[in-house]
Design a protein around this nucleic acid. Structure first.
Length: 271
DNA sequence: CCCATGTCCTGGTCGC
DNA sequence: TGCGACCAGGACATGG
């Protein structure tokens, strides 16, 4: 599920089901996620949800005395379901509420995380080391150009770097670079300010459109099937290596960068 | 065997 | 030479 639009749609979807509801039980079936689920998650019992926020791809479920931090990793999904719904394979964590609904985390690969920040303290600095939200005013014209000065890293790796900007994963990095006409292998420090500004606008557009489409197809997170939001969006390059560019019909090519696949059109995209 | 939506961490390199 | 910034790749676990 995990690109930013999917997490945001998830946040919007679960919020009305859990806001102001009181936790009655916390079940940890398998604590071995990316980090062990701490015993302190039990402190939510008897407390109610004040707010449901998102920072980067982290879901923040806020209580008066702390914050439950959820990350979906590469394969996690969250649903709000009836408490009698049978437990399925990879259902690792339940947050049960007084109105008999359950927030249930399923994560086959277990790269996700369930953490508790007492008094909002982020011991690992997970949230404090993050760059700006791409849809906020902190991600503005000139920002990427300034950050990229003297950087020799490929633009695609640069875009996917959380200290630079959060929420741009492999799918949207590929899609945004195609739309901006920039090769993923172009060096970040060699890209002009105007092209960076155009790329900034495109990233905002792509993420906004994905949230809007995910929001319409996935507005209720109480269903058993959770189709990721990006399936609703037409993908121009991601997953299309060897197929024809939808703009110029040239065969799309693939390279690996930092152990991730990048797909691009050798005609539509340039250094 | 190959590949896969994330990201922390390690170890190596580079430049001041 | 020292040190910090930067960068590539490994690691995690499961399924298609």
């Amino acid at each position: 599920m995990p690109e930013l639009p999917e997490v945001e749609v998830c946040r919007q979807g679960i919020t009305p089901h859990i806001l102001k509801q009181t936790v009655t039980q916390v079940i940890v079936r398998n604590a071995k996620l990316r980090w062990p689920i701490p015993d302190t998650v039990q402190s939510m019992i008897g407390h109610s949800v004040h707010k449901v926020e998102r920072r980067s791809k982290y879901l923040l479920i806020k209580f008066s005395h702390g914050t439950l931090v959820l990350h979906l990793g590469m394969s996690g999904t969250i649903r709000v379901i009836d408490e009698h719904t049978p437990v399925a394979k990879h259902d690792h964590f339940d947050l049960i509420f007084a109105h008999h609904k359950v927030l249930r985390l399923n994560d086959p690969r277990r790269f996700g995380a369930v953490l508790w920040f007492e008094n909002h303290i982020d011991e690992r600095g997970l949230l404090s080391k993050l760059g700006p939200e791409p849809l906020s005013d902190d991600f503005f014209h000139g920002y990427l150009f300034t950050k990229a000065k003297n950087r020799k890293v490929p633009i695609k790796t640069f875009l996917m770097s959380n200290p630079i900007v959060v929420g741009v994963g492999n799918i949207y990095a590929n899609e945004a670079l195609f739309k901006a006409g920039i090769l993923p292998t172009a060096l970040a420090g060699s890209i002009s300010e105007s092209r960076f500004d155009q790329l900034t606008d495109i990233i905002k557009q792509v993420l906004t459109a994905a949230i809007a489409q995910g929001g319409t197809t996935l507005k209720d997170f109480t269903q058993a099937d959770g189709r990721p939001g990006y399936f609703a969006q037409e993908l121009l390059v991601y997953g299309r290596a060897g197929k024809k560019c939808k703009i110029c019909q040239t065969t799309l090519q693939e390279v690996r960068q930092s152990n991730r696949s990048s797909v691009f059109c050798p005609i539509c995209q340039t250094d």
